[in-house]
Design a protein around this nucleic acid. Structure first.
Lengths: 259, 259
DNA sequence: CGCGCTGTTGAAACTTGTCAAAGTTTGTGG
DNA sequence: CCACAAACTTTGACAAGTTTCAACAGCGCG
């Protein structure tokens, strides 16, 4: 129930590098060749339209682990599509409190928070070496007026984010610690699956503290919940490596409020 | 810090009913005459563009207190601009848990959650007798391809909602009960002010339980926090009528985490 | 090889939830 | 217009869940 993403699973590891040879040119653009098409903005576009989008999504940017993609307050100019890697977004307030508001994987769009005020309202940080495609927003709006499918896709992506947030509010507002972690693991599993990875075994890029911040819990509580899940046989944990042994068990933990 | 809305304050009680006589015709449309212009979608549009928008925002719909504007699962066809009244949106999950995800006042847009899947993902309920303007979405997308300012306004409205959600996550993830209620009251005050009402005195349309659901608290906790605020002299409560006596005190309660 | 960051675990303290009872307001039907 | 029922609110006592504080273990990087 948590996040309702509709695209079908798809292999990502093997890029369809068809005709285009791997040259400097092929590094510049890619939407039309990108394996993330169905997750990103370009689903359902015609060949010609894709070519136009390629013209827009010119530059890529590489980030090392720990680098900021943007910071709260930075002027908003572009959206970013995660091409490879893993990000978190977080919000800080004066008194030092902060919260992770999301984790972004390949094919997901970052930066939409900046549209409303022309300045970003959160920080985006790479949790591993990553690469993003830059999508200059003014140009995206311009092209959207021309390409109906692009406009619609973009609206959908924004709306999907709203629905995702609803799910997170639900989590933060009504669930207890273990339910939150179960929801988190199931969500991760689902998203890895969508990207062609194993649904049952994956590597978390974030620390317990970051998970806790995202889930509205302290890191110790997260750690304890992991331990209990392991004791109960739901998962096997080894640091950041997670193996889900009983996905149905996790689901039930969520659905049947264990009274 | 909670919600960053930029439009200036504006009187709403007195509609500028200029030329158009109050006939059945004038009931049909209104964007060009609407006092909510600056809060809604039509800011910055030219006269001609406004006329086109008027053509689109044809119908209005009245709802009595308690009526649903839409329900989770309903096919998505239109957005709704609150013209008068007060709404809540909430999400339910199978096991009975639910959470209020927002309260909407005049000039705010409802329904954007439905864009991503073509079906609404939450319920919208009128908390008092209300009236909304219907904005057929397909037509809005169509007109947005023509009117740049409309497209941009709409993107901003969606993005503003994302930023609002960030604030709510912050609240749910990092604040304790009294901080949550203080943030809630300050937010209400700000929004009433924006609509030309008193910043210090207002009538809450929702029950303690709905406030609690929104803030991730039980109704008893909300009630206790109200009582404590009253004891401390921050506010005067009389059922749903709130008078803020020490707005600065409430702010400090939020900012300086009282260690 | 050791230092620092990250993660685990325990016990105590604190916050919020739960259950229960009584008071208040609102709405409806007579 | 009143009376009664239903819905909502307040308050208390107690229970449960989470955080806090603290100590220690493990891994990874320089």
């Amino acid at each position: 129930m948590w996040i309702k993403t509709t695209p079908r699973p798809r292999e990502i590891s093997q890029l369809p590098n068809s005709a285009i040879p791997v040259t400097l040119v092929s590094i510049k653009v890619a939407c039309s060749q990108c394996s993330l098409r169905e997750l990103c903005l370009s689903e359902g576009l015609s060949k010609e339209e894709l070519a136009k989008l390629d013209g827009l999504v010119g530059t890529r940017r590489k980030l090392r682990r720990g680098q900021h993609l943007y910071r709260a307050g930075d002027p908003f100019e572009a959206l970013y599509a995660v091409r490879t890697g893993f990000f978190k977004t977080d919000v800080l307030i004066e008194d030092g409190r902060d919260q992770v508001t999301g984790f972004q994987m390949t094919g997901e769009i970052l930066g939409m928070d900046g549209i409303s005020t022309e300045a970003h309202s959160c920080n985006a940080v790479a949790l591993e070496d990553s690469e993003v495609c830059l999508i200059p927003f003014a140009q995206l709006e311009h092209l959207s007026r021309e390409i109906k499918a692009l406009q619609h896709n973009f609206n959908k992506v924004m709306s999907r984010e709203l629905v995702r947030d609803q799910g997170l509010m639900m989590l933060l507002g009504t669930m207890r610690a273990e339910e939150r972690l179960a929801a988190f693991l199931l969500n991760m599993s689902q998203r890895f699956t969508l990207r062609g990875y194993s649904p049952a075994e994956f590597h978390l890029r974030m620390t317990r503290e970051e998970i806790g911040s995202y889930l509205g819990l302290k890191l110790e509580t997260v750690s304890r919940a992991f331990s209990r899940f392991q004791e109960e046989g739901y998962i096997a944990v080894q640091q950041k490596h997670i193996r889900i042994l009983d996905i149905e068990g996790l689901r039930q933990l969520l659905n049947h409020r264990n009274i």
